[in-house]
């Protein structure tokens, strides 16, 4: 069993190398979709203990760490192509145009919106505040004050291997995440637990599966493969096809 796995992984590795070198000239695309469903019971988002700032108290912010839909769909699972540090990947013309479109990270009723922000290196980012109170948006690499109904522009030049926590020091209960990648192939599952990434260059691709509570999602059955300790699994994207991973089951016990 071990040997078989080893051989498969080695072959996959070789195939990956091939795929990477091919990618530069590849112009054939496919898509990936799936749905995350929690197996077992998880508590509903609970109110956060907020004692200061009347606006935030009245907004009754919720702890959005785990959001499970009515039929078990898990929101905010992050899926993205994992590139080795020297790997390049083709970018579909549709995405190339979107690089200059700002990604908006808003503060709404003392929540970060979206809860998980996906942004490409060099892509403009608009930090917004739709609340009547001041917020600050702290990503560690930068920390900006965002006045009430104001905004601030920024961009991030270096990708990070995993989503970075984002916080507001004025309201320490606020929590969100930002994923920065050198490519556009990333998604966060919606309230229903579904995600889709379009126009991926065909070939064998390594994807990372991540959720803020457990972190990288390991031992997850993803298509033919199972995620490793880093939440990574290999998926083959075929030309002109959308690969549907179907329901990806996540046991409640890991939360």
């Amino acid at each position: 069993m071990y040997i078989k796995q080893f051989v498969i992984k080695s072959l996959l590795g070789l195939a990956l190398l091939g795929a990477v070198s091919e990618n530069v000239s590849s112009a054939d695309w496919g898509s990936l979709k799936g749905r995350f469903v929690v197996e077992g019971e998880l508590p509903q988002p609970s109110p956060l203990p907020v004692s200061k700032d009347q606006f935030c108290i009245d907004s009754h912010p919720l702890d959005e760490t785990i959001i499970v839909g009515e039929d078990g769909g898990l929101a905010n699972v992050v899926v993205f192509i994992r590139l080795g540090r020297r790997d390049k990947i083709d970018v579909h013309p549709d995405y190339a145009a979107k690089l200059s479109v700002p990604v908006v990270l808003d503060n709404v009723a003392c929540h970060f919106r979206p809860h998980v922000t996906l942004v490409r290196t060099g892509q403009p980012m608009t930090l917004k505040n739709s609340d009547p109170v001041g917020h600050n948006t702290n990503l560690g690499v930068f920390n900006q004050i965002i006045p009430s109904e104001g905004e601030s522009q920024t961009k991030i030049d270096r990708a990070a291997p995993l989503p970075i926590p984002v916080s507001c020091n004025i309201h320490p209960f606020m929590k969100g995440f930002v994923l920065v990648q050198d490519h556009p192939y990333m998604a966060a599952s919606d309230a229903d637990g579904t995600f889709e990434i379009e126009n991926i260059p065909a070939g064998k691709r390594v994807f990372t599966f991540w959720h803020e509570q457990p972190g990288p999602l390991k031992d997850l059955k993803v298509g033919e493969d199972t995620t490793d300790r880093r939440g990574q699994a290999e998926v083959t994207i075929k030309v002109g096809e959308t690969l549907d991973l179907g329901v990806i089951t996540i046991p409640a016990a890991i939360f």
Partner: peptide, 14 residues
């Protein structure tokens, strides 16, 4: 610029 490492943010929007 704020004070890096502390909650004190920068104020590029001012």
């Amino acid at each position: 610029y704020g004070m890096p490492g502390t909650p004190m943010p920068g104020s590029s929007s001012m």
